[in-house]
Design a binder for these strands. Sequence first.
DNA 1: GTCGCATTGACATGATAATGTCAATATAGT
DNA 2: ACTATATTGACATTATCATGTCAATGCGAC
Lengths: 156, 156
Amino acid sequence: MAMTKRTRAGEAFTRLVLDIFRLSGLLLTAGDRLVGPLGLTSARWQILGVIAAADYPQPVAWLARSLGANRQNVQRIVNDLHAAGLVALESNPNHRRAPLVVLSDKGRQAFNEAMRLQAPWANDLADGLLLKDLETAHRIVIALRQRLEDTDRTAG
Amino acid sequence: MAMTKRTRAGEAFTRLVLDIFRLSGLLLTAGDRLVGPLGLTSARWQILGVIAAADYPQPVAWLARSLGANRQNVQRIVNDLHAAGLVALESNPNHRRAPLVVLSDKGRQAFNEAMRLQAPWANDLADGLLLKDLETAHRIVIALRQRLEDTDRTAG
DNA sequence: GTCGCATTGACATGATAATGTCAATATAGT
DNA sequence: ACTATATTGACATTATCATGTCAATGCGAC
């Protein structure tokens, strides 16, 4: 007989998943609403964040990989950001067809402004929650993420 | 001056968010892969789950509300499920235009089979994680979810 | 009854995301 | 150099999701 019985951890994980989906959707729409006035969306904001956080300029495919998103969508959003003047494309000495994406002044301003809007929102949402618990939640999320990424790589 | 400084909890929350997005995406694709052979997707599975968990048959709009999803997408997926013979639509004595969605035998079998596949997968993913930590993560996720839902309801 | 209002399903339209294919380019091995 | 393989950007196609509108229906106030 196949193993259909859940461990206690398996049960706890199963209960967690549905609420993760729900939370993720709510965070996305809240983010859209938060930075909409800046001409951003959650997706654009996230990509600007990766560009800003990188140690050096990267081509689109690398950004996509560090986001865990698919290449083509990142490409489309980067094109939009470029059209909106929020990022610039620098020639890549190592790869003629893969320009390096960098923030423009306008892009950096928009990102900083987004983070400025995010701060009080984040403070408000996290207010009253125990720092220790938030960190535990983060550890769990990271652990699950890594396990799933390993599975993806293995079972590709 | 605007409040741009994050509390420690606000910082922990901010760090958590990006990994939540990543995990959610990974869970969705893992779910698709898990139940794909049954003719299901993560979205279909989730909706079958709500139907199965309900105390009594509900119309589409109610299912959408308990999922926190928008009505029209649930409608489309329910239509697909209906076409695939996984759900049946019963006439609703209380509302002529809002039939009640119930699982067909085939739908119940598919859902049970999906849960049977999910069990060892969940056990494996959760293996080695502390039950206490999983429960803490769940509490945090639920708390954040409720706060965002309240915000939605307030700020429409 | 009937009037106003909210909810519902259907439909149209557009936005966003996923998937596959292609040629150009880069890289490693020989 | 030459070849095989992998990576990349562009494009086309499809799937999924969001938003707005409409008429039909249900429901409560009166």
